[in-house]
């Protein structure tokens, strides 16, 4: 592509400015947390979307707020409380819907709101310091610390290795659970491990985009990827790519426009989706004309 001298002048300082930003520890942390969240959500989100358990994931996300509230009340690390709550609700939804008469979506709805209610009650009961609710609801990527980053790195590593090793089992179980059971694959075990991974990924991504927006991180890049491919493996790849693209641009927009990072990241995802959809439609219609 040909760049005019003038555009060069605009672009160059901009890139330099971005590189400058990495001198700040907070930006460095924010950048890497966005990268790690994009990778983890690329894998887990593809699983969620392919298996149609988006609503379950929404339930897990919101119920984790109960854990955050209780942690504040008792003085624990909120990430710990959120993790315990989200894992329990993930396995709880599975248990309630399989073993009792309660239907799955009802079970999700109940845990969803119960978690939120518990969270609010305990945060209000906590004497003295009251945490900034907005931080949990909408994320605050610029406050990610080194511990968060390490936990995210560990989670992402485990997920990537697990998917690489068991890719085919994961694919087959997701596609046709009964057929997998007929082949004596330990379906329950894999389902539960994957649900725990979903729960942990959600909890660790709350820092980045917040409880309310996390579900988009797990579905928007995947839906965009699905425009270009109908293959599970490629969908993971594209999702990671679109996740990175959206979260980096969202991060930079949030920094310069001084708006909440979670919202600007999700907004970027949406823009990428729309652009991708339009591009796809255009190439399709050009293709049709040439035939």
């Amino acid at each position: 592509m040909y760049l005019t001298p003038s555009s060069n002048i605009i672009i160059k300082p901009f890139m330099e400015q971005i590189i400058e930003l990495f001198r700040y520890q907070f930006f460095y942390n924010a950048f890497f947390s966005a990268l790690l969240a994009s990778i983890a959500c690329g894998f887990i989100g593809t699983y969620i979307v392919a298996r149609r358990i988006v609503f379950i994931s929404g339930g897990i996300t919101h119920s984790s707020f109960g854990g955050i509230g209780i942690s504040y009340y008792l003085g624990f690390n909120p990430v710990l409380g959120a993790a315990v709550f989200s894992i329990l609700s993930a396995l709880g939804i599975e248990y309630i819907s399989k073993k009792t008469e309660v239907r799955e979506d009802s079970a999700i709805g109940i845990l969803w709101s119960m978690g939120m209610a518990l969270g609010i009650i305990f945060i209000f009961l906590t004497p003295g310091y009251s945490p900034n609710l907005m931080t949990y609801l909408f994320g605050s990527i610029l406050t990610v610390n080194t511990t968060d980053l390490l936990l995210m790195a560990l989670n992402t590593l485990i997920i990537v290795v697990f998917f690489l090793v068991f890719y085919r089992i994961i694919l087959y179980i997701s596609f046709d659970e009964e057929f997998a059971r007929a082949h004596k694959v330990p379906v329950m075990l894999f389902n539960n491990i994957l649900l725990i991974m979903v729960a942990l990924t959600i909890v660790l991504s709350i820092r980045v985009v917040g409880i309310i927006l996390v579900i988009s991180f797990l579905t928007l890049p995947q839906t965009t990827a699905n425009i270009f491919t109908k293959d599970f493996k490629k969908m993971i790849g594209f999702s990671v790519l679109f996740g990175c693209l959206g979260s980096f641009s969202g991060l930079i927009i949030s920094y310069y426009a001084n708006i909440p990072s979670g919202a600007s990241i999700i907004f970027s995802f949406a823009v990428i989706f729309i652009v991708a959809k339009v591009l796809k439609e255009l190439t399709l219609s050009i293709h049709l004309k040439h035939q």
């Binding site: 392919a50 090793v165 009964e178 004596k184 694959v185």
Partner: peptide, 27 residues
């Protein structure tokens, strides 16, 4: 009856190979 989700992102070839799932070619 296939309660199979026809929008599931998988190709014909992968579905066929899934018939080998219990033989140790999984990994």
């Amino acid at each position: 009856i296939n309660k199979i989700d026809s929008k599931f992102p998988i190709t014909v070839y992968d579905v066929i190979l899934s018939g080998l799932m219990s033989q140790n070619q999984l990994i």
